Amino acid sequence: MIPERIAPLRPFRDRSFGLMRKFLRINWLFVLCVCLLAGVGYTALYSAAGGAPVPYANSQLFRFIGALALMLGIAMVDIRQIAKISWPAYALGVVLLLVVMKFGHTGLGAKRWMSVGGMEIQPSELMKLFLTLGLAAYFRRATQERLNEALFLLPAAAAILLPVGLILKEPNLGTAVITAMIGVTVLLGAGVRWWKFAIVLGVMLVAAPVLYHHLHDYQRARITTFMNPGSDPLGAGYNIIQSKIALGSGGLAGQGYLHGTQNQLNFLPEKQTDFVFTIIAEEFGFLGSMAVLALLFSIIAMAFYTAVSCSHAYGRLVALGVGTNFFLYCFVNLSMVMGLIPVGGVPLPLISYGGSALTAVMLGFGVLMSVHVHRDVEFANEEF
Rank of each mutant, 00 (worst) to 15 (best):
I2K: 03
E4F: 01
I6D: 14
I6N: 08
I6G: 02
I6S: 12
A7S: 15
P11C: 07
F12G: 13
R15W: 10
G18T: 15
G18W: 00
M20S: 10
R25P: 00
V34K: 03
C35M: 12
L36S: 04
L37E: 15
G41M: 10
G41R: 07
Y42M: 14
Y46E: 14
S47A: 15
A49E: 06
V54A: 06
P55I: 14
A57P: 12
S59P: 02
Q60T: 13
L61T: 14
F62C: 04
R63Y: 01
R63T: 01
I65E: 12
I65F: 11
G66Q: 08
M76K: 02
M76Y: 03
D78H: 11
D78T: 10
D78R: 11
D78L: 01
R80S: 11
A83Y: 05
I85Y: 08
A89I: 04
L92V: 15
L92E: 00
V94R: 02
L97C: 10
H105W: 01
H105A: 06
G107L: 04
W113G: 02
M114P: 02
I121P: 02
K128F: 05
L129A: 12
T132Y: 02
T132A: 14
L133T: 12
A142K: 07
Q144D: 13
E145D: 10
E149K: 14
L153C: 06
L154R: 01
L162N: 05
P163W: 01
E170A: 13
G174M: 12
A176V: 10
V177N: 07
T179M: 12
A180W: 11
G183S: 09
G183W: 00
T185Q: 03
L187W: 05
A190V: 06
G191T: 08
W194E: 15
K196L: 12
V200D: 07
V203Y: 00
A207T: 08
A208Q: 01
V210D: 00
V210W: 08
Y218S: 10
R220S: 11
R220V: 04
R222E: 01
M227H: 07
M227D: 09
S231Y: 13
P233T: 13
P233M: 11
A236G: 05
A236P: 03
G237A: 09
Y238S: 15
I240G: 04
Q242E: 08
I245D: 06
L247C: 06
S249G: 07
G256E: 05
T261F: 01
L265M: 15
F267R: 01
L268N: 03
Q272S: 05
D274G: 04
D274T: 11
F277Q: 00
E283W: 09
V292Q: 04
L293H: 01
L296H: 00
S298Y: 02
S298D: 02
Y305C: 03
T306E: 09
T306Y: 11
V318T: 03
A319H: 07
L320W: 01
G321M: 08
G323C: 11
G323Q: 02
T324L: 00
N325H: 09
F326L: 13
C330K: 00
S335E: 10
S335V: 08
M336S: 11
M338T: 15
G344T: 15
V346C: 07
I351Q: 11
G355P: 07
S370E: 03
S370G: 04
V371S: 04
H372V: 05
V373L: 06
H374I: 07
D376V: 11
E378K: 13
F379A: 05
